[in-house]
């Protein structure tokens, strides 16, 4: 499965996803509960050490915050104008730690393991009348059809390229959606035909 998992066999890789999620939740709460910049800086150091412990180079930690750099700049400007640059720095460090920790969870946990975890977590709810079988099926179907529909969008794009419409959003999405909806009938027949 195409995911953001990074191969490895550290303690973090082998730990059950549930513990990692719990750890992330506790870390996030602590970061906001303890309103102290030194605490946040210490937490940053621990986080970077965790990346090293998982065998991940520091540029993977940097990659977690790179997409929001412009937000950091925005925060810094706003805080420098309305409060002080000190508060800005504090907010940015706390924010960066949170993003890195979340990224660490994603990098060390396979999507399939997380999905198994979700399904195991939902199972007790089936006694309350929730159709967990349906939820499992929906998850699998989505994973199956993401690449199929991405190919459909790509095919439509190539077809429209021939007509010079490859940058026209309507010309791309309308045929893709029509095909998606037409597929739905056969797919649900196929599922029923196999005794679902």
């Amino acid at each position: 499965m195409l995911d953001l998992y990074s191969e490895g066999n550290s303690r973090l890789h082998t730990m059950k996803p549930g513990w990692k999620i719990l750890g992330l939740a506790i870390s996030g709460s602590l970061l906001f509960a303890v309103d102290n910049i030194l605490f946040s800086i210490a937490f940053l150091a621990v986080t970077l050490a965790l990346f090293a412990a998982a065998g991940l180079p520091l540029r993977r930690a940097w990659a977690q915050i790179r997409p929001v750099i412009w937000i950091f700049v925005l925060i810094m400007i706003a805080q420098a104008l309305f409060n002080s640059w000190w508060v800005g720095l504090f907010v940015i460090i706390r924010f960066a730690v949170l993003l890195m920790l979340a990224g660490l969870l994603t990098l060390t946990t396979r999507s399939s393991e997380m999905i198994d975890g979700i399904e195991a977590g939902l199972r007790p709810l089936s006694r309350l009348g929730l159709r967990t079988r349906g939820i499992s099926l929906a998850i699998s179907l989505t994973l199956r059809f993401i690449p199929v529909l991405a190919s459909v969008v790509r095919e439509v794009r190539e077809a429209q390229y021939a007509r010079g419409l490859e940058r026209n959003i309507l010309a791309l999405t309308i045929p893709a959606i029509v095909r998606t909806l037409k597929m739905s009938e056969d797919i649900s027949d196929a599922i029923d035909a196999r005794g679902f």
Partner: peptide
């Protein structure tokens, strides 16, 4: 339900019939 177990059905487009990713 019993009949669907007795009679298997293969569709024209396998892309619409394969419902699991692996």
């Amino acid at each position: 339900r019993d009949i669907r177990r007795k009679v298997g059905f293969v569709f024209q487009n396998p892309d619409n019939q394969i419902v699991f990713p692996i």
